[in-house]
Design a protein around this nucleic acid. Structure first.
Lengths: 277, 277
DNA sequence: CGACTTCTTGAATTAGGTCAATCCCTGTGG
DNA sequence: CCACAGGGATTGACCTAATTCAAGAAGTCG
C-alpha cells in the first residue's frame, strides 16, 4: 500500500512547489499576533505558547513563516517527510490520497483556520497530498520544534490531540456520506456541510464559492462529474439553489436538509446482534 | 448533526450492557504484565508508564479492569460521556456512526491490539458506537487518569498522538475504498486488508473468520448485502477464495490484488490544476 | 483572439439495488 | 436425539439510478 500515491499519478508536479510557493520573506514577526489569528485553528496553540513563555521567541522558533500558494500549488505530497504542519489563513486546500492503480481520492476540503499535516505525526511522513484550490496563505509550523515545545507544555499536546480527534470526526461524517447511496443526498449534505463551516468562519452560509471543480466534487463524494452537474441542475430547477460556475447560493436550506436526511428506502442496516438472546 | 446516532436508531439496546458486559472481578493485577500485552495497542503506553514510575501503582490507577463482552455487547454509544478508552485483547469490535435519518454506517472493524474511544478526546463524548462482534475481551482505561498521567509523561501524549494518526490513516484508506465504485474491488481490498491485519497479529493471512455478517460487510463497504454474496460467489467460482458462512480462505492473493488495484475505467480524476502553466 | 479547461446536456448502457423466495445453519426445546 | 424455528446467506428477476460516451456551450488565460 501507499506505493506511489500522487507521485506516479502526477509526475509532472515535481516542480510545482518551486514555481508556485511564493515565500513571503516576512520573518514571522506578527504572524500569530493579528486579528486573523483568532480564527486560526492553531490559535489556541499559539495562545498556549504565548501564555507560558516569552511570547515572541517561542513563536518565532515554532511558526516558521507565512507562505502563499497559488491555485494548484503543492503544499506537500504523500510519503514525503513531514517536517511541517500548515495552518490555513486564507484560501482553501484539498487533500487526497492515492492507490497503486493511480486512482486518487479526495479526502478533504480545508478552509481557513484548519490545520494540515498532523496526521503524519505517527510515521513522520505525510499521509496525503495537499494542494491549494485557489490563492492560499498558510502558516508553516516546524513539526520538530512544535514537538520540542509540546514536550514541555502539555497544553500543546492536548491541543494537538483535540485537533486530531476533530479530524477523525470529520472523516466519520464523510464515511457516513459515502456510505449512503443516493447522489442527491450526498450533494445536499455536501452543500449543507460547507454552509455550516462557512458560517463558523463568519462567512455567508448561503452564498459562497465552491473552490473545487465539478470533477473534484464528484471525486470527493464518490459520484461522476456529470452526475454532480445534473443534480445541481435539478436542485436549481426546484429553486433550492442557484449555481453559476463555482459560485453557489442556497435558497432553501430546509429543503436541502430534508433531502440530505431523507431516510430513503432500505439501505443495508447493520445487524444489531444480540437482539434475541 | 449527531443528534440521535445509534440511540433512537436502536432503542432496544439500552439494557444490553448490563446483560452482556460481564465484569470480571479481577482487579487489574496482572492485566498489563503478561505475554498478551506485547501485542496490545496500548502496550507501548503501558510500557512507558512502567518505565517511569512505580509500575503497579500507576497501572492500577489507569487500567481500570478487564471486561468481557459477548457478541452484540455494547462497549459504548455515540454521544455518551467518554470516560474510558478500550484496548481490545481478543475478539473483535465494530464501530458505527449514525445520522438523524436513522441510517447507520459502520466505520471500523477492530481487531486485538487496537484502541477504541480515543476519538472522543476532543468533545469528551464518544463519536461512535462500539459493539462486540464476538466474545471480546478488553482493557478498560480511565480517560481522566490517563490524561493526568500523560500530563506528567509526554511520552504518553506522544503515544496517543501516534495512535490517533494511525486511526486517521485508516480512515483515509477506507475513504479511498468507498470512493472507487466497483463492488469487486471493494471486496477484494477488504479481504486483502483483513489478511494483512491478521498477518500483523500473527494469525493466518489466508484463512480467517470475518466476524461481520454479510449485511455488516455490505454496510461497511457501501454496497448491498446481496451484492456481497454475489461477488463472493463469483470469487469462489473463479477459485480465488472459498467461503463458508463467515469463514474465508484466500487461495489467490495475487489475483485479489489485481482485482483490488485494477485501475478500471475512467473514474473522475481530480484535476491536477496548475498542470499546463 | 484563440487554445484550453470546465461545465452542461443528451442518449445509451449497466452495475448494483430492491424485492422475494429458498436454503442452510445453529441453537432450542420437546 | 431429533424436529423445528429463526436468522443469516444465497440466488433469481426486475428495475432504477448513475456511469459512460459524446458533443457542444461557456468561461479563462496567455
Amino acid at each position: 500500500m501507499w506505493k506511489d500515491c500522487g507521485v506516479d499519478a502526477m509526475p509532472e508536479m515535481e516542480a510545482t512547489l518551486k514555481r508556485d510557493a511564493v515565500v513571503v520573506p516576512l520573518a514571522a514577526k506578527r504572524v500569530c499576533g493579528a486579528v486573523a489569528c483568532r480564527d486560526c485553528g492553531v490559535y489556541r496553540l499559539c495562545a498556549a505558547l504565548g501564555l507560558e513563555e516569552d511570547e515572541l521567541s517561542l513563536l518565532e522558533r515554532v511558526v516558521k513563516r507565512k507562505l502563499i500558494f497559488k491555485r494548484g500549488g503543492l503544499l506537500f505530497r504523500a510519503r514525503e517527510p513531514a517536517h511541517y504542519v500548515y495552518a490555513i489563513r486564507s484560501g482553501s486546500v484539498k487533500t487526497c490520497v492515492g492507490t497503486e492503480g493511480g486512482r486518487v481520492q479526495i479526502t478533504g476540503l480545508h478552509l481557513p483556520g484548519e490545520l494540515l499535516g498532523l496526521a503524519g505525526f505517527d510515521s513522520r511522513e505525510y499521509t496525503c497530498e495537499a494542494r491549494a484550490l485557489e490563492t492560499t496563505s498558510v502558516c508553516q509550523v516546524s513539526m520538530q520544534q512544535l514537538e520540542e515545545v509540546a514536550e514541555r507544555l502539555p497544553a500543546i499536546h492536548r491541543e494537538m490531540l483535540c485537533i486530531m480527534s476533530g479530524q477523525i470526526r470529520h472523516y466519520e461524517q464523510l464515511l457516513l456520506l459515502l456510505g449512503k447511496r443516493n447522489a442527491e443526498r450526498r450533494l445536499a449534505a455536501f452543500l449543507l456541510g460547507l454552509s455550516q463551516r462557512f458560517a463558523l468562519h463568519r462567512y455567508s452560509p448561503t452564498q459562497f464559492n465552491l473552490s473545487m471543480s465539478r470533477s473534484d466534487i464528484g471525486n470527493y463524494l464518490g459520484i461522476a462529474e456529470e452526475t454532480v452537474c445534473r443534480v445541481f441542475t435539478r436542485f436549481q430547477e426546484e429553486g433550492v439553489i442557484t449555481t453559476r460556475r463555482r459560485y453557489v447560493e442556497l435558497h432553501d436550506i430546509e429543503r436541502l436538509r430534508a433531502i440530505a436526511h431523507d431516510p430513503g428506502r432500505r439501505a443495508a442496516a447493520p445487524s444489531a446482534l444480540a437482539s434475541g438472546t
